[in-house]
């Protein structure tokens, strides 16, 4: 079996998650994944089995995403679909002990949508895709310091924009830490 295709296929579900979180529109997200896979396949010779294919695919997808944003700056200002009520309700039901409420999720999602794309990518790679700082830096071909500062800015923006809904949780966590 072709190792390249095997790894590529394995990466599809999480690439779709990443793409969806970036654009929050299912068909745009699948277009992104599709473009990424086509590009990956077309340039498979460049991969040569070196390094992690997953990182490489995330890099391709991130670059396509940034290029698209830059290309249609004008009409991208339309807000993407917000997560449907059904998804939010289902998500809420699954979250442990309802610690994360509906309003917080709505605020969080809206705040993510407004982040600069470069910060959004870093945040999603690290917090959603579970990349280490090193992996994120390698994926986006950035120095570690830049990764850290973008992550920090993204997190603080989100914190301020969701601050109305986060206090109980924060207090609970302080107690836990003690």
């Amino acid at each position: 079996m072709d190792e390249f295709l095997e790894q590529l296929t394995k990466a599809i579900p999480t690439l779709r998650r990443y793409a969806y979180a970036l654009v929050r529109d299912s068909s745009l997200a699948d277009d992104l994944v599709q473009d990424c896979l086509e590009k990956g396949l077309a340039h498979r010779a460049q991969w040569r089995g070196e390094g992690n294919l997953k990182t490489w695919l995330y890099r391709i997808l991130s670059n396509i995403h940034l290029n698209q944003i830059r290309a249609d700056k004008g009409n991208f200002l339309k807000t993407s679909d917000t997560t449907s009520e059904a998804v939010l309700t289902a998500a809420e039901a699954q979250s442990p002990a309802n610690q994360i409420d509906h309003l917080y999720l709505q605020d969080l999602e809206a705040a993510i949508a407004q982040l600069p794309e470069e910060q959004k990518q870093i945040l999603l790679l690290i917090c959603l895709e579970g990349f280490s700082y090193q992996e994120a830096a390698k994926t986006l071909e950035l120095p570690l310091g830049t990764v850290m500062s973008r992550l920090s800015r993204a997190r603080e923006t989100l914190r301020h924009k969701t601050s109305g809904t986060g206090t109980d949780e924060a207090a609970a966590n302080i107690r836990r830490i003690k």
Partner: peptide
């Protein structure tokens, strides 16, 4: 820190 941790959990719930 608690707020950042909550963001991470929120992201997972959302996506």
């Amino acid at each position: 820190v608690a707020s950042w941790q909550k963001q991470t959990r929120g992201l997972r719930v959302l996506f």
